[in-house]
Design a protein around this nucleic acid. Structure first.
Length: 1025
RNA sequence: GCCGCCGUGGUGGAACUGGUAUACACGAGGGACUUAAAAUCCCUUGGGGGCAACCCCGUGUCGGUUCGAUUCCGACCGGCGGCACCA
């Protein structure tokens, strides 16, 4: 046998053998349990593989190979996340098409990865920039859009004035453009957003974290990012406004079946109710009886009951949906009442002969004559793709009432099924029609309703809609100036913590709902418009920020919670010295106490515990209609459009008549067209906007003139769902065959960097939940595993340069994995990266350290050369069992560094020993093969085995054989080690004691009979004297 | 500021559930082989004291709990990561 093992020849040989033998293809073992081991797929960069990549890939490969040997059918795929900025930047510089660059980089990187001997099933490779793949990325977007979860809004984005392009948050470093270092400003541009904050998802995204086997730190990071806060919304009536609240009623339609979920919380109704409440309306959403077969008289009674205390008068706003519209028109016509605004959504008043049995049932309700003058203004909303009876009715109202009409293309019957959860158009119409102050109420959000008695002023954000309405004439100038200044400030300026708080008084006052105290209303930019209600109640005695503000502007500070365990300053003075009374200086009451305690200055509630009072006061607010319990989140909607070329085109067409229309699924993918110039146009549009031929298209609905959306999707779009495609990568009809998804989902183990904690991992969870909801993920998977995509997550730690700093070209501390493989081989690189330290810790590279692993593999090679066909001696046999157990446990717990050390010890043992028994060596090779597969295969073959070691069963160990015959027992006197003795395993306390006391070393320390003896079996005996 | 994680030899790190602190590896020193170097092999290697047997100290610092603490508790110091006026 050769003196040194030739890694170059051996590794090439086995990589070829695995590939031609299709050893790693998944789905081959019928009837065995599945296991899905996933790596975070790389971006194919021109720099190629970084030494950080093989760290995670080796760990997952060890797990995959181990599990195959344990009999699992393992899915272990790899692919490329190939849309992204670097390829585009390269294109801007050189004019090379990003597709060409990408293909080149993928080729190079794939070869690099293959040289490391990972057991990937390459037949399943996915590439996100491949049209066959992004067709489905776009398809998912269309599904989101159809359900109202993707929407366009005027959003302020990060804007680099030098590069003339919008930037993602992750491209802004310390407020500067990552590329050119220019200060980033805000620009208001139409943007696509994905509604990750939707009530149907945000709660689940937060709560489901608890059930995941993920690092606690990552779960916490996500929790903080989502930022759930529980508290209450409280209404403060603005002083001097005595007008009573106006009424708004929303009337649901007639669902087709009885027993259908409560129609009052369906579709866009809850959303509308919240919006109207915010405008200051008293909102009623009556649940009408026998909704699926309405009888007018019954509905009338229920309707009137629901608005008791209020009147249908000329200030009222009524909104109806479907059959509800008929009810409202009939009610107003027959009662001869007039309201201010009447909104009719998907109205129906007629039954067309083709209509279903359910529609026939509505004849009773429809049997009336509409009268003129029932509303000041009428709005009708309907969609072209709804039933004929709806458009007929809509046209009737249009002519009869001269109603405003808004026609849509694809909203169906305006139900949740049609993806309609909001009706901003209707809200805008209502808002526009109503002049003057409609609300005399400032609604605030607070997590501390228990401090309500201590609220001494209110603060609105400068953008708050109420600001201009409540500001007094005297204060107008000052307020306008402040609002103007705030608008001009950058985010960085506004959120700079070091800066002094600023603000102005509006001149208005509001009444504290608990005691009617009149408190001033201020505006200040430390209150954010985008969080909660955009307004706060300030409690300077118990909030640091309010305290700072109140001190600066000389506002009242009222203490309402007494800090527990401290003495009020005056009480303290009566003691001779604080220390004598058991109190230190720090026990003095702090100026601003933000913790819990006992209520003071809170009327009848004085003396109550603040935690208890919080619940009490929330219930009180609710009962008296002055507020309610409420939950808020820090998470914002997900900005989903980029003004870039190299990304998935957003599959939407803008039609002059129909508005935004999703590209029909049959026409997907919307292929990325070829452009000559990749540079942004300067207007904030994507380079795609310059291709007029591509931009101008026909509307898929009406066939009229339309323009394509020119923004592309962000990097995260492709990685949101790629692990689903691995299950069925070549499917041309569906995203993936449900049978195949059922066979593999969910991912059992996901390995990758922690830097994705709140981006990729949050988005991926959201998209997966969405796909579960729309039945893309088979229900069997959801029933069995829930709607989380990744059961277990492991984060690899960063590999730093030798100097202990992050590797970077500019520092010149980058290690190229190719060089390492060339010199030491893939097995050495794999094992070294596992040996460096705990998998999840960051650790520095050491060019000296890797030699140790290289020496170890050579030593193994030489030891194997001395192998003899003899049976294993007993001590070595026991060692073999211990070794198998240790390696098994270490793989299960991701403790690869100690596993490598165990291998080293085993080889050292063989090295110093006289014989190398073949059965021992064989076991060693089998359990080593997941770590160093090439050398293991080669030596395995040289031992005379014809089949790949990959097909070997993972060895068992015998618990009994683990026990040593003799054990070393530590003898302590007063807890200090004084001696050790060898005893037989499981020796009794009596025997150990006797032997121990006979030792000279021990006698020396023990003069009298020990007071106490502590005995731990097989471990130690401790004499206390 | 808030939240989380981490402090062990010259270095990377090990130590099960509170039970011999420093496994394994690197580096360093000494030796063997060699004309020499590389490679390989053997020995030593936490600090201090002692000729030696052996003794004392030692896991960021200071306290506590315990027969016994790297491990549990409290305070502090230092480092890393995240969030950043989120009411």
């Amino acid at each position: 046998m050769e003196k040194r093992y030739d890694h170059q020849t051996i590794e090439k040989k086995w990589q070829a053998a695995w590939e031609s033998g299709k050893v790693w293809e998944a789905g081959e073992k019928k009837g065995t349990p599945k296991f899905y081991v996933l790596d975070m797929f790389p971006y194919p960069s021109a720099q190629g593989l970084h030494v950080g990549h093989p760290e995670g890939y080796t760990a997952s490969d060890i797990e995959a190979r181990y599990l195959r040997m344990r009999g699992y059918d393992v899915l272990h795929p790899m692919g490329f996340d190939s849309f992204g900025l670097p390829a585009e930047n390269f294109a801007i510089k050189t004019g090379t098409h990003p597709a060409a660059t990408t293909i080149k980089n993928i080729k190079a990187m794939r070869a690099q990865i293959k040289r490391l001997g990972f057991s990937y099933d390459w037949s399943r490779e996915v590439i996100t920039s491949d049209p066959a793949y992004y067709r489905w990325t776009q398809w998912i977007f269309v599904q989101l859009f159809k359900r109202g979860l993707a929407y366009e809004a005027d959003a302020p984005i990060n804007w680099c004035p030098s590069c003339k392009t919008g930037l993602a948050n992750e491209e802004v470093v310390d407020g500067k453009c990552e590329r050119c270092g220019t200060g980033v400003t805000k620009k208001q541009i139409k943007q696509w957003l994905v509604k990750i904050t939707d009530e149907r998802y945000i709660e689940r995204l937060q709560n489901d974290l608890d059930q995941l086997d993920w690092p606690e730190s990552i779960k916490l990071l996500q929790k903080n990012w989502i930022g759930r806060s529980e508290g209450a919304e409280v209404d403060f009536a603005v002083a001097g406004s005595t007008k009573k609240k106006k009424l708004a009623v929303i009337v649901h339609g007639s669902p087709s079946q009885a027993g259908y979920p409560d129609p009052t919380v369906q579709h866009w109704l809850p959303w509308m109710a919240v919006q109207l409440e915010r405008m200051g309306f008293h909102v009623a959403v009556p649940a009408l009886p026998r909704a699926n077969a309405p009888v007018y008289g019954e509905w009338k009674r229920a309707f009137e009951k629901s608005i008791k205390g209020f009147e249908i008068d000329e200030d009222a706003v009524l909104i109806g949906h479907s059959a509800g519209t008929s009810f409202l028109v009939r009610y107003l016509s027959e009662q001869k009442k007039k309201v201010s605004r009447l909104v009719l959504v998907a109205p129906s008043k007629v039954v067309v002969s083709a209509d279903s049995e359910h529609h026939q049932r509505l004849r009773e309700l429809y049997n009336f004559k509409a009268q003129y003058g029932i509303a000041d203004k009428v709005l009708v909303l309907y969609s072209a793709d709804d039933k004929e009876s709806v458009s007929v009715t809509a046209k009737f109202y249009k002519d009869f009432y001269k109603a405003d009409v808004q026609q849509f293309a694809d909203r169906g019957h305006f139900t949740a099924k049609d993806g309609v959860r909001e009706l901003p158009e209707a809200l805008k119409w209502i808002r526009a029609g109503i002049c003057g102050p409609i609300s005399e109420v400032v609604r605030v959000f607070t997590t501390r309703p228990d401090t309500l008695f201590g609220a001494t002023y209110l603060v609105l954000s400068p953008e708050h809609p109420l600001v201009s309405r409540i500001t007094t004439l005297e204060q107008k100038k000052e307020v306008d100036a402040y609002v103007h200044k705030a608008a001009a400030k950058s985010d960085l300026e506004r959120t700079d913590l070091a800066k002094q708080k600023t603000g102005v008084f509006t001149g208005a006052y509001a009444a504290n709902p608990v005691n009617n105290a009149q408190i001033p209303i201020w505006i200040a930019d430390y209150v954010l418009a985008s969080y909660g209600t955009g307004a706060i109640m300030a409690v300077p005695a118990h909030d640091e920020r309010d305290f700072e503000f109140a001190t600066k502007f000389n506002l009242a500070i009222i203490q309402v919670i007494k800090q527990p365990g401290v003495m009020p300053p005056r009480a303290l003075e009566s003691f001779a010295s604080p220390a004598a009374a058991g109190h230190q200086q720090s026990d003095l009451e702090s100026k601003c106490w933000t913790g819990d305690g006992t209520m003071v200055h809170s009327g009848e509630y004085d003396g109550m515990d603040s935690v208890e009072f919080k619940k009490k006061i929330t219930a009180w607010l609710e009962k008296n209609g002055k507020g309610k319990a409420s939950v808020n989140y820090k998470l914002r909607d997900w900005l989903f459009s980029r003004q870039r070329y190299w990304g998935e085109p957003i599959p939407v067409v803008h039609c002059e008549k129909c508005g935004q229309v999703a590209v029909p699924e049959k026409q997907l993918p919307v292929k990325l067209p070829n452009v000559k110039k990749y540079k942004p146009t300067g207007t904030g549009e994507s380079p795609l906007a310059a291709i007029t031929k591509w931009v101008h298209t026909k509307c898929p609905v009406c066939g009229g003139k339309a323009q394509r959306e020119t923004n592309t999707m962000p990097q995260w779009a492709g990685s949101n769902w790629y692990w689903l495609r691995y299950c069925d990568p070549h499917n041309g009809k569906k995203l993936a065959d449900p049978k195949k998804l059922k066979a593999w989902l969910p991912v059992d183990l996901y390995v990758g960097g922690a830097e994705h904690a709140v981006l990729h991992l949050l988005y991926a969870r959201f998209i997966y939940k969405f796909l579960c909801d729309i039945n893309v993920i088979p229900s069997e998977v959801i029933e069995k595993y829930g709607d989380e995509p990744f059961k277990k997550l492991k984060n690899q730690g960063l590999i730093l340069g030798e100097d202990g700093v992050k590797m970077s070209k500019s520092r010149g501390n980058v290690i190229n994995p190719d060089d390492v493989v060339e010199r030491y081989g893939a097995d050495t690189l794999r094992m070294y990266e596992m040996f460096m330290g705990p998998f999840e810790d960051k650790k520095p590279w050491s060019t000296e350290g890797i030699k140790g692993v290289s020496r170890f593999l050579n030593k193994l090679w030489n030891v194997a050369g001395r192998v003899q066909a003899v049976s294993v001696p007993e001590t070595l046999e026991r060692y073999r069992h211990r070794m198998v157990k240790k390696i098994t446990d270490d793989i299960e717990s991701f403790s690869f560094n100690t596993a490598v050390s165990t291998f080293m010890q085993a080889v050292n043992t063989l090295h110093t020993g006289t014989v190398v028994p073949a059965p021992f060596l064989e076991t060693l090779l089998v359990i080593l093969s997941p770590f160093a597969p090439h050398i293991a295969e080669e030596l395995w073959q040289r031992l005379g085995h014809a089949k790949s070691i990959a097909y070997e069963k993972w060895p068992q160990y015998d618990e009994k054989a683990l026990k040593a015959e003799k054990v070393t027992i530590v003898v302590q006197v007063n807890g200090k080690v004084r001696d050790t003795i060898i005893a037989s395993a499981d020796a009794t306390e009596e025997n150990v004691k006797k032997t121990a006391l006979m030792q000279d070393k021990i006698k020396k320390y023990i003069a009298r009979t020990p007071k106490k003896i502590i005995f731990v079996k097989n471990r130690l005996i401790n004499f206390v004297v």
